[in-house]
Design a protein around this nucleic acid. Structure first.
Lengths: 238, 238
DNA sequence: CAATTTACTTCACAGCGTATAGTTTCTTCA
DNA sequence: TGAAGAAACTATACGCTGTGAAGTAAATTG
């Protein structure tokens, strides 16, 4: 045991270098997009050679995968925090807060959004099960919380839903069902559909496709939220 | 005038080579994704050197831009055709047909969808106004037709809409307003929102994010359509 | 203090887009 | 018909990328 930590000096330096690599990579991404994440550029920035990075990440794709996981986790943290900060007694406000946090994060961290949801980087292929299934499922669980909050008011619309538990990934259900024991499959389907709605508007905006059509994507998103709350039938201003 | 065409042999060969470059590029894309579109690979496939392509396209980005335009036009053709083929008297069927054609095209031409809506290719930057604004606006116009068909049944939901004509791109309005003179701004906003809904679900599916959560994205999309028609309030089975 | 592990550099190779210069082939006009 | 000119294409080269193999210097360990 030392004052600087329990592990030896070597491991501490190693952890610091690893952190710096990621930090520099994210900075490059922020300024030049995911494409700008190159080993040589990172090394240049750090005053090293590109091959030195191989001591910390087995391959460039490994680094990118780690970055995706980190960035995705940051997104999940942001929306979770917004959800928790809103009053649990008012589903409409909570849902609006979650979705607004989602879009705000995406607009502020546009390159991070592209890293997570687009083709991250030339030639990158995600490892089995996606790069950040945990973070993705955290987001989905958050969405299910959203659907769960609205479910008492909206379930009457889905009495003829064709969904069963077998339609969903077991790993997702492992997280979702214990958290919301009374929720039927139709509610999870609703959560995924809401995800689609929000993701679509935001990704069109982030990738610049909305900008060609409308000058106020934010207003569009706000109307979307108003409609969402209305469609879900949750009471407003409770 | 010759039997093979009005332009000289030279121009005909030139057009054929141009077409072959695009064909090979699309084939490479279909098998290896947008990243596989490299001048050297195309040239290899054609038995030429990479530099020969510079006689037909000033730069690789020029080629990619042309491909985006072509592919986007194919998408616009597909959804337009589905719309026209459905009975004009039944908005519900027409809307469903349009959206189904959209998803089907995207799933079948997944790499084309990524080319259009993702970061197409390493380092690619779209020229001013986007690469295929025409095709994009054709799709938006199609969406507006969708909203227009539903408008009589759904306008009561948007009486307090905050949208004005200034919220939209003039080039879009030039196409949309003459075609649907009685439509208010709120209907165009609705069209863009529907675009977002469909685009989100489809792009999550195409990029493999849905697959981590549900085994039946198609069922999800079908429920989305059913809900869309219901939300719009258009009569079913008229 | 010697042996080993770790961190890093150097060199190399293949792939990419693309600029420049040179070559071959076709078209056109006197 | 033959010379001039344009068009199509190749060859070479440069800088960028990821990454493998080999070598070096410093820190850690016995």
């Amino acid at each position: 045991m030392t004052v600087t930590g329990s592990k030896g000096r070597r491991e501490r330096l190693r952890a610091e270098t690893t952190a710096e690599i990621k930090k520099v990579a994210l900075a490059l991404m922020a300024s030049g997009g995911p494409d700008a994440i190159t080993l040589r550029a990172i090394a240049r920035e750090m005053g090293m050679t590109a091959n030195a990075i191989y001591g910390y990440f087995a391959t460039r794709d490994d680094l990118v995968t780690t970055l995706i996981k980190d960035v995705y986790t940051a997104l999940a943290d942001a929306v979770d925090a917004a959800w928790e900060a809103a009053p649990a007694t008012d589903p409409a406000i909570r849902i609006t807060a979650w979705a607004t946090a989602f879009r705000t994060w995406a607009v502020v961290n546009a390159q991070g959004f592209r890293l997570i949801y687009g083709d991250p980087v030339p030639g990158y292929h995600a490892p089995e099960g996606g790069p950040a299934p945990d973070a993705a499922r955290r987001v989905c669980t958050g969405l299910t919380a959203l659907a769960a909050a609205a479910w008492p008011h909206t379930q009457h619309l889905y009495e003829h839903s064709a969904f069963g538990w077998s339609d969903f990934d077991p790993a997702l259900l492992d997280k979702v069902r214990p958290a919301f024991p009374d929720l039927p499959p139709a509610a999870v389907a609703l959560a995924l559909r809401i995800w689609g709605h929000l993701h679509g508007l935001v990704s069109l905006e982030v990738y610049g496709h909305m900008h060609t059509q409308t000058t106020s994507p934010e207003k569009l998103f706000e109307e979307e939220l108003a409609q969402l709350v209305q469609m879900l039938g949750v009471p407003r201003r409770s």
